[in-house]
């Protein structure tokens, strides 16, 4: 039973966790055993979650693909639908359809060093892949996580970064364009972090998401340092209504982000990313 179609299926909230004042996680289980039994996904893919009487939004799946029966979604309360979700409790029912899109290049990552670059207000699509790597730490080389924010107050979910920093062979670096006190990171654009990151550019697969200008600047640095452009991957965000490649809202050049993305190989997207309006 494929539920990556046009209409939702019922899912129950079986756990809820408040991660920060504005971020919360919902653990969801499809109530129809046939649907739950067939459901498979890969990190980087997303579901359309439906709030009764209000609407649907695209949300990445951040749990482990080895446990497809319990789907974790970490959501930031920003607007109509996400705020409605923030009010729900364990036992409440919502709608779910998915998974949609192309995920991260898991096979290519094996044995390589991994660099994660994110900007803005915390980036769910890369959380899925960080979680995936940390559960299979021995299969990967070094893990470097770079996060840039506008103002140090914008770094939500600090505990998560602190936790990641404790892992073996892992480096976490933070940068804020403007800093308040106390700020454990650097001041400046995210590109200042590359000077402090210990990694071998030729050996690294980079995965990024966040503001498109940041992606560009970071990719430039990586390429200048000797990374291959094919080893850079990005996750994109566009308005999404249908998630099945039909409503046209996620159009990006000649592709639909919901179907051909959200994860792209950087060279597939770099030209248009450099232009406003695509």
């Amino acid at each position: 039973m494929n539920i990556a179609t046009h209409y939702p299926h019922e899912a129950e909230i079986i756990e809820r966790c408040q991660e920060s004042p504005t971020i919360f996680s919902l653990v969801l289980q499809l109530t129809d055993p046939a649907a739950a039994g067939q459901y498979r996904f890969t990190p980087g893919q997303f579901n359309m979650l439906y709030l009764y009487g209000v609407g649907e939004i695209p949300i990445s799946i951040v749990s482990d693909p080895a446990r497809p029966g319990q789907l974790i979604h970490t959501i930031r309360d920003v607007g109509r639908v996400s705020h409605g979700f923030s009010q729900l409790r364990v036992g409440d029912r919502i709608g779910l359809r998915g998974p949609y899109g192309r995920g991260w290049p898991l096979e290519r990552m094996e044995g390589r060093d991994i660099m994660i670059v994110t900007g803005g207000l915390g980036c769910a699509p890369v959380v899925s892949v960080i979680n995936y790597i940390l559960r299979r730490r021995e299969r990967y080389g070094r893990l470097v996580i770079l996060q840039g924010v506008k103002h140090s107050n914008d770094l939500i979910w600090r505990e998560r970064y602190a936790e990641w920093e404790q892992q073996d062979n892992t480096q976490v670096l933070l940068a804020a364009d403007a800093g308040g006190e106390p700020w454990p990171g650097f001041i400046g654009p995210i590109t200042v972090l590359f000077e402090h990151a210990r990694f071998n550019p030729q050996q690294t697969i980079a995965m990024m998401c966040g503001p498109e200008r940041m992606i560009h600047a970071s990719a430039d640095v990586l390429i200048e340092r000797g990374s291959r452009i094919e080893d850079i991957w990005i996750s994109m965000e566009r308005n999404m209504q249908c998630a099945v490649g039909q409503c046209g809202h996620c159009q990006f050049g000649a592709s639909f982000v919901c179907r051909n993305g959200p994860v792209y190989r950087y060279p597939e997207a770099s030209e248009l990313l450099a232009k406003r309006g695509f």
Partner: peptide, 21 residues
């Protein structure tokens, strides 16, 4: 041209809701 948006119309009795495009 094929673009459409989706929208929701909950019933007044709050027992059902319709999803349109």
């Amino acid at each position: 041209c094929f673009c459409y948006r989706e929208l929701e119309q909950p019933a007044l009795d709050r027992e059902s809701s319709r999803h349109y495009r």
